[in-house]
Computed example of a mutant assay.
Amino acid sequence: MKATDIDLEGNDTEDREEATAGDAVFDAIVTNGPLNDAWRLTLWSNYYTEPVFTEMMETFDVSRDEFNVLACLSIVGAMTAKKICEVTGRPKNSISRAVNRLAERKMIRRKTNADDRREIRLALNESGQRLYERVLPVALDRQTMMLGALDENERTVLDRILDKLMSTRRTW
């Protein structure tokens, strides 16, 4: 290898060519493919969720679905697991496991509806609220970093687009 084949960061020409080829594949599939919108939304979500939920698990021993339960109960207050499933789009069995684990850890409490014993409302305990407040910055920091490429006007437009898309979620 000649000295001219090495860039300032120590990457050689072969690495640059591989990166360029990778960009071409990315563009062909993600940017210009027939499912480009779905790919881009999915990839954006994956680049958000994977690091966030990995850090939450490693640092706080909180899974994705546990975070979803904590967030729903913190933001809205008491609700059923069924409602959490509807809001988050997560499967019933995943939310059920999260609820059981949070209850075992004494982060949430369950209260059976006296009028309909089949309905169980969930609510955060103080320890659950404190855990949510400790975990939330992980998600917020990642969101802020990933949306940092947008200026204020673009962020406003993105919010409107996402609101419009989500308003049709019951028809999906």
Score class of each variant (00 low, 15 high):
Leu136Pro: 01
Leu165Ser: 06
Lys164Ser: 09
Thr59Ser: 02
Phe60Leu: 00
Val138Cys: 06
Glu17Tyr: 15
Leu43Asp: 03
Ala114Trp: 00
Leu158Ser: 09
Ile120Phe: 00
Asp61Asn: 08
Glu14Pro: 07
Thr168Lys: 15
Leu8Trp: 03
Phe67Arg: 01
Thr4Pro: 09
Glu18Cys: 00
Cys72Met: 07
Ser167Ile: 12
Arg105Thr: 09
Leu124Lys: 12
Ala81Gly: 11
Arg170Met: 12
Ser96Phe: 00
Pro91Asn: 04
Val52Ala: 01
Gly22Gln: 00
Thr31Gln: 12
Asp12Phe: 12
Ile84Phe: 00
Asp37Glu: 11
Asp163Trp: 15
Arg16Cys: 09
Asn153Arg: 10
Arg130Cys: 08
Arg130Asp: 11
Leu140Asp: 06
Thr88Tyr: 15
Phe26Trp: 00
Glu154Asp: 10
Val138Leu: 07
Met56Thr: 04
Val30Ile: 06
Asp163Ser: 10
Arg40Gln: 14
Asp15Val: 02
Lys92Ala: 09
Arg155Ser: 01
Thr171Val: 05
Asn100Glu: 08
Thr54Arg: 03
Val69His: 10
Pro34Lys: 13
Ile161Asp: 02
Ala139Trp: 07
Asp23Ser: 01
Asp163Gly: 05
Arg142Thr: 05
Glu9Cys: 07
Cys72Ile: 08
Asp23Lys: 06
Thr54Glu: 13
Glu17Leu: 00
Lys83Ala: 02
Lys111Val: 05
Ala98Thr: 13
Asp23Arg: 08
Met1Trp: 03
Ala71Ser: 05
Lys92Val: 12
Glu18Gly: 01
Val99Ile: 12
Leu124Cys: 04
